[in-house]
């Protein structure tokens, strides 16, 4: 118990001192020792993030390998995930080794695979978001009709109908534009100000060593 308390104390001291020094470094002129320290810490964070991608891939393979081993529901999808992940890794290694010949010489096959599969799939799925939203608005009205759900559905319908280039329906386009310029913009700013205040409060809690995740 004693060593646990010591670790908690030391981790709090480390977090508070590094956090405050980095903050001071970010608010001082470049070239000064605190600014150099802050730049070093930010570079360290970038390097950690790059290494962490590798950890992420290992986690992906481990999780899905475990699901296959235990024959959990949906394990064939896990098998597919593992095969595709390994195949893309192998493609990337072959790209780096520049093994492609003939028409494929100089090609980055891993990037081709990414563009052919991932980008087109993401684009196709993104186009479905509109239908999800409309259906969600319908469900919202079925579940509970409140003032806010009416506002949401009305705004959604106006935003969608306002896009239709109908003759003589310019008033709808104008209404849509007003909706986006005034209430939507004000609401968005309100939410962002709230998020900003919450972020500052949480940041001060972290800087004072009160966040549990950094206390060990």
């Amino acid at each position: 118990m004693g060593s646990h308390r010591l670790i908690r104390f030391l981790s709090s001291v480390l977090v508070i001192s590094i956090g405050l020094t980095t903050l001071i470094g970010l608010s001082t002129a470049e070239g000064t020792p605190p600014a150099n320290f802050a730049a070093f810490m930010l570079r360290l964070a970038s390097v950690t993030a790059a290494v962490a991608v590798f950890v992420g891939v290992i986690n992906l393979l481990t999780v899905h390998w475990g699901r296959m081993r235990r024959s959990e529901r949906g394990w064939p999808y896990s098998l597919l995930t593992v095969i595709v992940a390994l195949a893309v890794l192998v493609l990337r290694v072959l790209d780096r080794a520049d093994v492609w010949t003939g028409d494929l010489k100089g090609e980055q096959m891993s990037e081709r695979a990414f563009e052919a599969v991932q980008v087109s799939l993401e684009s196709a799925l993104a186009s479905l978001v509109l239908f999800f939203l409309v259906y969600a608005a319908y469900r919202l009205m079925r579940r509970r009709v409140t003032g806010w759900s009416l506002v949401f559905t009305g705004a959604l319908l106006l935003a969608l109908v306002g896009w239709i280039p109908l003759d003589g329906a310019e008033v709808l386009a104008d209404a849509r534009e007003w909706l986006i310029r005034v209430p939507v913009s004000a609401g968005a700013r309100g939410i962002l100000i709230g998020v900003g205040l919450g972020t500052v409060a949480a940041g001060v809690r972290a800087l004072t060593g009160q966040d549990r995740s950094i206390r060990g």
């Binding site: 978001v129 999800f132 939203l133 969600a136 949401f152 309100g190 939410i191 709230g194 998020v195 919450g198």
Partner: peptide
Amino acid sequence: IAFAQANEVLLGEELY
């Protein structure tokens, strides 16, 4: 999207 789909939604700073 959360507002439309969720049974309960946390708005903006409510998470914090």
